[in-house]
């Protein structure tokens, strides 16, 4: 009787071939992307998405072609923050045309596919219990398709706004083996830093993904009347030494930034001279330098 190895294939299903074809599709698309950057944090609500949206705008204003993947499948916010919530995706044989924000930044987000404001992401399954069991697998599949099946064209930067926590990073690292680097966002509170440290270790030591640096968000508050800087969190909650060494910038809390995020207006373009915009531009420059130096080194 023939052994497993002697049988030519899996009776014609070619499961390995199907998986390889998925990976090929992804790599083909990524071939026209110069740099991929994941924006993440172990903690929720620290401003990852607001920062991703503004970095995308800053990079665009500096002459780059930029695409953004809203990798937060269940809590997508970027379509709103980038002012393209009403965009209708266009499907072509080459792929799905992304939403394009005012300044030309491209976006793909689950939000563009959901029916109503209050519609959650639910997957087809025999029972909803099955759907929940397989949820994570579906989400990774969705993320793969978002990257692979969007007609990005030639991109200088593809930013990925990750959901809170570090669970999604291993999937991203697997989908994008040459991930350019990670920008980690924290707020000054010890609680946030405690969690964010874990995700940095995960990224750097376990997944071996390059850390571009840390952004300290809501670092302080600038009085709009006298210009005085006040700490937003407790005054003795300073940034951990390990974070200081790779600090890309400290972004103050600015209510106008929150308002711009809510109304889909690019803050950095609307208020270019505020301390927060200047800090965001500094972060953008450092990210660009990171990749410029990397390119130099590889020459």
């Amino acid at each position: 009787m023939k052994s497993y190895k002697e049988l030519p294939n899996d009776a014609g299903s070619n499961i390995i071939g199907q998986v390889t074809a998925q990976a090929d599709r992804l790599q083909k698309r990524l071939a026209s992307v110069k740099h991929t950057v994941a924006i993440m944090s172990g903690k929720g609500g620290v401003g990852k998405s607001a920062i991703a949206a503004n970095l995308a705008v800053a990079l665009t204003l500096r002459g780059n072609t930029v695409g953004v993947v809203d990798a937060d499948i269940n809590g997508p916010t970027l379509a709103k923050m980038m002012g393209v919530r009403n965009a209708t995706l266009e499907y072509t044989p080459a792929g799905v045309k992304p939403a394009v924000a005012g300044l030309g930044t491209k976006l793909i987000s689950m939000d563009l596919l959901l029916a109503e404001d209050d519609t959650p992401v639910l997957w087809n399954a025999h029972t909803q219990k099955d759907a929940f069991t397989w949820r994570s697998t579906m989400e990774v599949g969705a993320l793969r398709e978002f990257i692979a099946d969007t007609v990005w064209g030639e991109l200088d930067y593809l930013l990925l706004d990750l959901p809170p926590g570090s669970d999604r990073l291993p999937n991203v690292a697997e989908l994008i083996p040459n991930l350019g680097g990670v920008v980690v966002v924290t707020i000054p509170s010890e609680v946030s830093q405690l969690v964010v440290k874990k995700s940095v270790t995960m990224a750097r030591d376990v997944l071996k993904v390059p850390i571009i640096g840390v952004v300290e968000n809501m670092a302080f508050y600038v009085c709009q009347h006298c210009g005085e800087e006040e700490p937003l969190f407790s005054a003795d909650e300073t940034l951990d030494d390990a974070f200081q060494q790779v600090l890309l910038g400290s972004i103050p809390f600015d209510p106008r930034l929150a308002r711009c995020s809510d109304t889909g207006i690019p803050y950095i373009d609307e208020y270019p001279d505020t301390p927060a915009s200047k800090a965001l531009i500094q972060v953008t420059e450092k990210i660009q330098n990171f990749f410029d130096e990397k390119t130099q080194r590889s020459l």
Partner: peptide, 16 residues
């Protein structure tokens, strides 16, 4: 394009 999302997302909007 996006065949998994489009065939398996139960709560997708029609026009997409």
């Amino acid at each position: 394009p996006m065949q998994l999302v489009r065939s398996q997302l139960e709560t997708a909007k029609g026009e997409s």
